[in-house]
Simulated scan of single mutants.
Amino acid sequence: MVTESQAYIELISYFTENLDLFEEGKGETIDKTVRDLIEEHIAQKIMAFFSQHEGLDQDTRLDVVREADAIVTDLEEFLSRRLDQKSTVQQEQFIIEFSGLIKNLFDSAFVN
Rank of each mutant, 00 (worst) to 15 (best):
A7Y: 06
Q90V: 09
M1P: 00
N18A: 07
I46G: 00
E28D: 04
Q85K: 02
F22T: 02
I9S: 07
E28K: 08
I30V: 09
T33R: 10
M1L: 09
G27K: 12
D63L: 13
L101N: 14
V65K: 04
L75E: 06
H41P: 01
S5K: 06
F50K: 02
V65W: 05
K45Q: 13
I102H: 02
G27Q: 10
I96P: 02
H53C: 00
I96M: 10
I46E: 01
S87Y: 05
I9T: 10
F78C: 09
D69S: 15
N18R: 12
T33M: 09
E23W: 01
L75H: 00
D36G: 05
T60Q: 13
I95S: 13
R82C: 02
Q90A: 12
E97L: 07
E97Q: 14
F106Y: 15
R81L: 08
E77K: 11
V111F: 06
D63P: 02
D69Q: 15
N112R: 12
D107W: 07
E54M: 11
M1Y: 10
Q52G: 12
S80T: 07
V72F: 00
E39A: 11
E92S: 11
F110T: 02
L37I: 13
T60D: 11
D107T: 15
G55F: 09
L56C: 00
I96A: 08
T16Y: 07
D74T: 03
K45D: 10
E97G: 15
E40D: 12
S108E: 06
F50P: 01
S13N: 10
E92M: 15
F50Y: 06
Q85E: 05
N104E: 10
S87E: 07
L83K: 01
Q6W: 06
I12L: 14
Q93R: 09
A7E: 15
S5I: 08
L21A: 03
R66H: 12
S13Q: 07
Q6M: 10
I96G: 01
A48L: 10
F98Q: 02
G55I: 05
D31S: 04
G55R: 06
N18H: 13
V111Q: 08
R82N: 11
D84K: 07
E40M: 13
S80I: 02
A68K: 09
I95Q: 12
S99Q: 07
T88W: 01
V34H: 13
G25H: 01
S5H: 10
V2C: 07
G25Q: 00
E97V: 03
V2T: 10
V89K: 15
Q44E: 07
H41Y: 14
E97F: 07
H41E: 14
